[in-house]
Design a protein around this nucleic acid. Sequence first.
RNA 1: GGGAGCAUAGCUCAGUUGGUUUAGAGCAUCUGCCUUACAAGCAGAGGGUCGGGGGUUCGACUCCCUCUGCUCCCACCA
Length: 880
Amino acid sequence: MELPAKYDPALTEDKWYAYWLENKFFHSEPDEREPYTVVIPPPNVTGILHMGHVLNNTLNDVLVRKARMDGKNACWVPGTDHASIATESKVVAKLAAEGIKKEDLTREEFLKHAWEWKEKHGGIILSQLRKLGASCDWDRTKFTMDPELSDAVINTFVYFYNKGYIYRGVRMVNWDPVGLTAVSDEEVIHKDTTSHFYHLRYFISDGNGNPTDKYLIIATTRPETIMADAAICVNPADERYHWLRGKKVLIPLINKEIPVIEDDYVAMDFGTGCLKVTPAHDVNDYEIGARHNLPILDIIDDHGRLNEKAQILVGEDRFDARKKIVKMLEEAGNLEKVEDYTSPIGYSERTNAVIEPRLSMQWFLRMEALAKDALESVESGKVKLIPDKYRNTYRHWMENVRDWCISRQLWWGQQIPAYYLPDGKVVVAPTAEEALAKAQEIDPALTAADLRQDEDVLDTWFSSWLWPISVFDAAKAGHPELESNKDLAYYYPTNDLVTGPDILFFWVARMIMAGNEFMNDVPFRNVYLTGIVRDKLGRKMSKTLGNSPDPLDLIEKYGADAVRLGMLLCSSAGNDILYDESQIEQGRNFNNKVWNAFRLVTGWNVDEAAEQPEASAVAVKWFDNKLSQVIETVEDHFAKFRISDALMAIYKLFWDDFCAWYLEAVKPAYGAGIDKKTYDATIGFFDSLLKMIHPIMPFITEELWQNMAERKAGETIMTQRYPQAKPYDTEFIAKFEMACEAIAGVRNIRQSKNLSPREALELKVKGDFHAEVVPVIVKLANVTVAPAEGDMSAAQRFMVRTFEMFVPLTGLINVEEEIAKLEAELKYQQNFLNSVRKKLSNERFVANAPEAVVAVERKKEADSLSKIESITASLEALKK
RNA sequence: GGGAGCAUAGCUCAGUUGGUUUAGAGCAUCUGCCUUACAAGCAGAGGGUCGGGGGUUCGACUCCCUCUGCUCCCACCA
């Protein structure tokens, strides 16, 4: 079979993915094996694959494939999240483009559009994950709005309501005027924003609603809210304003009289020390208002426009109103001055709209008890965070947790199962029928038509926190008393969760809460937190910057294996990834290396009659040991989730050890056959190497493994056992490495003297060098090896550890140069010796340091002395 | 404003309870090679004193303090 010199992933990747699917290799059912379970962090159902997904899912797939090859029953459950606000706003935008307003639709009509959208765009991301090679059990694909998962959400609401954890109340919430919904505190992003600080004059009232000539000055960033002012507040200790006690002031423009009150909250040294209190539009003002019984006047509507209660500028957007009112204030003589000012402003994570603090009736979940247990789960180590540093952040959040606002003023999601009676009473039940039954306990005359279900849906995270439970057994969520079904009993708790630190609180912490509550056990043992994928310049990838490559383009250009390796290359847990396409090129190059090694090995003809050359026997013995050594290292890295280290160990084993040393050492002369013993060993090594590489680069390894030997139908590398380390001989490995150093020494001389590799040289070795590895030196350095005897001054000299080696080169030696080199080396050695001796002559060192450490220093001393001796001898010989 | 973390070769990072020849890797760089698996390659080489300062210790990249710079998280000073 003639193979091209370059590997073409396009010819193999789809083929093998189809083969894996066809044979159901990804599918898992409970059996007697140990389970290894992972649930996917469900991407938005209408989302498309970005580099963050690539990183996350590659890591996940590596862990899953490795576990599968370790003989575990691996199950990776995929699925998508309905992402209520994100999806709903996309649907709203799409309808708007068609000239349809959401307000003109009924809930049912809107949901029909939303489901259509979901059917059309949903699941694109899952098919993209297949391109990446993700070995998810697609038969288990779930969606957070699948009927049974939605039931789980409803049951959970009912459960917590009955437990007394869910309550309804008027609170200052974070209102998103674009998404037209309240969002949770966690969905608000504070960004420093430049704005202005307006100093406004409020004239003192004469008591009849007429201005006097006296005024006070307040400083505000939001002049458009003055119409909603309920009071002016000063600090009671602020003597500057004691004259205002009992006075009333007039709101500019509308001349409304409001009192001056005193409250400790006001900072005397900030602004003017006078604060306008606007209870409906600021959280602190709301609290001050509550303390002083101030009326609440809400002048901003859902869309962020002034309403009729504002009296002026009615219908204007809050930002337009701000510009206009400033002008009006100026004209009216109420504007003292304007300063530039930078302050943190809250933005909606989803729509990037400026959050409007707003009072509204919302549903809340009490978090205190849940957070306490969830904190304990991490503090006790039942859940391990990787890297560990996130424990601090986690603790801080759990100790300062606030009640969770779980209602959203949206339609796309699970509608809150709360039903209002005509008199305003509320009943909570999973279905309308049950709600009616409950309502009739209050008033038997009620009919279904009298009940009105709450319009709002639940926060998306209120469904995704059930994910590790509900994907296996949705009935269990909300019903801790039920026995788990077979799947849940087998797969729960899951093993590892790979996700980003940005959703540690949103999702990870809440899953732990739900797990503790319903399963009485945590949902996973390890949480591997990835970094954020950034561009080369350290900027976050974003659509607006256009610095985010399309992963599918990369896969098409370089192949999925290359993309996977490229992403993994620089990803240590918790560190951000600075993505650069050159890493993917490196991945592609490695693919090519593996491909070509395969071409070489499978191109050999076995010569049954040939004896195994000594060099080959040595190389086989060495690589056999080396392989075990590296397997052990790799296993250790995997156990510690050091995936990029594991990858690098495998990469070097293949490229440096296998290709650069082993294959060169056993390679038969051109045209000659290879002996059977070496050939079989080589195929065996290649087989092990492919298996080691498979979790990282699944496609090329399957392709080569299938072609390496006759395979039966339905066979796959995927389910082969991962290579196991055998006991290995470190001493022999070290001897072989010394042979490699000797070879490098000779090559170095060839290069500096411009000698062709084909020209055989002599290598003279002083001392008792390891004879067993000499055949490799002979072959790879193209030398004859003999003991060094007599005068070596006409030879190029180098050292391998403490062994002196010479390459006689009559006429090619520059004595001056050699002397200079030796003297430099001598100086280095002497300095080194001095530093070692300084240590050894320190009595306290010898007395306090462990014996092994002292022994090492003595060895250094002895080695250095012997080197100095040989350098001195060579110098003398040269100087003669 | 509070908290956490980071700072090691040109770049991206290791350095696992302070001690294994005066710091390692990958990439990049430089030199020489189109050597019959691979130029997406081969063979070599150079490059850092571990952000600055102080301390603890027989011994510190590794522990403590401090300064500088960066990042992230949390937060209602209008």
